[in-house]
Write a protein that binds this DNA or RNA. Structure first.
Length: 253
DNA sequence: AAAACCTCCAACCGCCAAGCG
DNA sequence: TCGCTTGGCGGTTGGAGGTTT
């Protein structure tokens, strides 16, 4: 693990000791989660708030499942990843006992190369399968201008900018800026437009429909974030009502 | 036996959004 | 409105331990 050392500001880094774990655990049990900036003060730990929070969430929290992932967990992870992309916290939220870090690590060490190879091989085939594409739950970063543009030209925007539906991180916004650059001047790519566009869409019925199809619900929010997913079937997006001819993944694996 | 290489995963880093004064 | 603080996230790092040569 990382070397245990003191930084210039005197905060301890690196692997946690058993004593530190005990202090942190007692603190959380006494005061509850949250107020992470107070944890170092309450425990006397010479750790930053982030380090305390991460240690609790990834290791000390009750009901965390250790050890290898079961077949069912891997299966679920693969399906969720196809729907959500690298939204590890959302994926972990659907796999009881597993943390986002666990899921991310497992994916990076066990599954990423496999799926990459499969995707590459699939790319060489004529795909006839059900496809899926995802929307990252970050609609609130969209610009007003682009939102209006999409509202006025939903099919054009969606088709040409299909990458926006499966982007990662801040991807919706970033990919819009990238993929729509050829059809929109840069100065109109303001976040709030797409926001309003998405706000105007009715997700609920589509979500329920999809939830029924996959057997569990994406509805509402996870950690306060809206988590909208779009089912793609037969080259047609059932939510946005436009064809998506690329930027999709095979639902099977 | 030991050096080189590989894999795993805990922990750190940087960024972002929300909340607040 | 602005700047600061805090919580939270995904990407990346690098040490420990295992495996291969």
């Amino acid at each position: 693990m990382r070397p245990t050392n003191n930084t210039g500001i005197g905060l301890r880094k690196g692997a946690w000791t058993a004593d530190e774990d005990i202090l942190l655990k007692k603190c959380i049990e006494k005061y509850g989660e949250g107020k992470w900036h107070l944890v170092p003060l309450r425990t006397g730990l010479n750790r930053c708030r982030k380090s305390c929070r991460l240690r609790w969430l990834n290791y000390l929290r009750p009901n965390i499942k250790r050890g290898d992932f079961g077949e069912d967990e891997v299966d679920l992870m693969l399906r969720l990843h196809k729907l959500l992309g690298n939204r590890w916290s959302l994926i972990a939220g659907r796999i009881p006992g597993r943390t986002a870090n666990d899921v991310k690590n497992y994916w990076n060490t066990h599954l990423r190369s496999n799926t990459k190879h499969k995707k590459e091989s699939k790319d060489n085939e004529s795909l006839q399968h059900t496809m899926v594409t995802t929307i990252k739950p970050q609609p609130h970063t969209f610009s007003k201008t682009i939102k209006q543009y999409m509202a006025d030209n939903p099919r054009i925007v969606a088709h040409n900018g299909s990458n926006i539906l499966r982007s990662s991180n801040d991807g919706v916004n970033n990919n819009l800026n990238t993929t729509l650059g050829s059809i929109l001047s840069p100065n109109v790519l303001l976040d709030d437009n797409i926001n309003q566009y998405l706000d105007d869409l009715s997700f609920n019925d589509r979500e329920n429909e999809m939830n029924n199809q996959i057997g569990w619900s994406f509805g509402g929010s996870v950690n306060g974030e809206a988590s909208h997913v779009v089912e793609q079937e037969d080259d047609y997006n059932v939510l946005f009502d436009f064809p998506v001819d690329e930027a999709m993944w095979d639902l099977t694996y």
